[in-house]
């Protein structure tokens, strides 16, 4: 149900773009919607991050994953249990770029005995890493459409990405990897019972959507070739706020508009969804804080006085018993 709902939502989106372009709504799909999408994405993303930021971090609560800094002769784990800013930056770097925590993943299994065993479980980490990195590289590669001329950095990335030298045009490895990784992430969500059980439509929808984006891109590059110069002109027109005229828009194949529309939908959907983990990971208080709690006092901005039971009240209640037991008291009676 959730899967079908997500799948058909993406199918409907594709049909919408197809129908729209056939009905000569190029301007809507080639300019208006992308503009709205980028605006929603940027504003939404910023809003969400500011919203998180507006809630304070009342306590310093890193999850420590290694030895603390204590006595000088005990070796501290400076990355997994950082006490300095540099340590935190390193920890965050490993988390953001290499998914350090996910790398720890284990598979718990119960055998006869009963005996619990903890096996390696790196596939999720690997697929996650493959997906995110190829997405990033593909995103960067697309900058050739956003700039007059093509910077050498982009050319280098393109060169590395296509170093297998297969096919015409040259096959980008990331195109294959991203489709494979998304497929794997989808398959595990369907077939691992626990993951299936916890999954929402909001988990399937982005997978279908991103698959659709990648697949339409692949089709466009390798199969239904579109008028590539026209695409670049259109994109340059968009970013210079000077959209190209209708006739040029019509020269580009419909598959491009499907691709662009799905990207637009991803951008619109992004700030309202779990995809915001992209921004959120940087704010996670269990990861981005140093474990220097006993060294540097952490301030809670909403710390307020609370009702307490004072020593005086305590002694008043127990004075006689304390005196009898020979425990010193403040007042004799």
């Amino acid at each position: 149900m959730k899967i079908l709902f997500s799948f058909f939502t993406v199918v409907v989106l594709i049909l919408l773009a197809y129908a729209g372009v056939n009905a000569n709504m190029h301007f809507l799909f080639g300019a208006v919607i992308p503009y709205i999408a980028v605006a929603v994405f940027l504003l939404g993303f910023i809003y969400r991050v500011l919203k998180w930021g507006s809630s304070p971090v009342p306590f310093r609560i890193p999850t420590t994953c290694g030895q603390q800094k204590s006595l000088p002769w005990i070796k501290q784990n400076k990355i997994e249990n950082p006490s300095s800013t540099l340590g935190v930056i390193t920890r965050m770097f490993l988390e953001v770029f290499f998914f350090r925590s996910l790398f720890r993943n284990l598979k718990t299994q119960l055998y006869e005995g009963p005996r619990l065993a903890y096996g390696e479980a790196k596939w999720l980490w690997l697929a996650g890493l493959a997906f995110h990195w190829s997405f990033l590289i593909i995103f960067v590669r697309h900058f050739r459409f956003f700039m007059q001329g093509v910077p050498s950095v982009i050319k280098t990335i393109e060169g590395l990405d296509s170093f297998l030298q297969v096919g015409v045009p040259l096959l980008y490895m990331t195109d294959v990897i991203i489709l494979g990784a998304v497929t794997y992430l989808f398959i595990r969500r369907v077939f691992i019972p626990q993951v299936n059980y916890i999954s929402l439509a909001a988990d399937y929808f982005p997978l279908f959507l991103i698959f659709g984006i990648a697949a339409s891109g692949v089709l466009m590059r390798y199969f239904f070739k579109v008028h590539i110069v026209g695409v670049k002109e259109l994109v340059m027109g968009l970013i210079t706020f000077n959209p190209v005229e209708m006739q040029k828009m019509q020269e580009i194949g419909v598959i491009f508009y499907i691709h662009l529309f799905l990207i637009s939908m991803l951008l619109v959907y992004f700030p309202f969804s779990k995809l915001m983990h992209m921004g959120g990971v940087f704010l996670s208080p269990t990861r981005n804080l140093a474990n220097n709690n006993r060294m540097v006092r952490h301030i809670n901005p909403w710390n307020y006085p609370v009702k307490v039971h004072t020593y005086e009240e305590y002694e008043n209640e127990f004075r006689d018993k304390m005196k009898k037991a020979g425990i010193p008291v403040e007042k004799e009676s």
């Binding site: 969400r48 925590s101 999720l124 996650g128 626990q194 779990k274 915001m276 983990h277 959120g280 996670s284």
Partner: peptide
């Protein structure tokens, strides 16, 4: 509340 992707790890 917001950022869980339900990866199941």
């Amino acid at each position: 509340m917001d950022i869980c992707v339900r990866c199941g790890a």
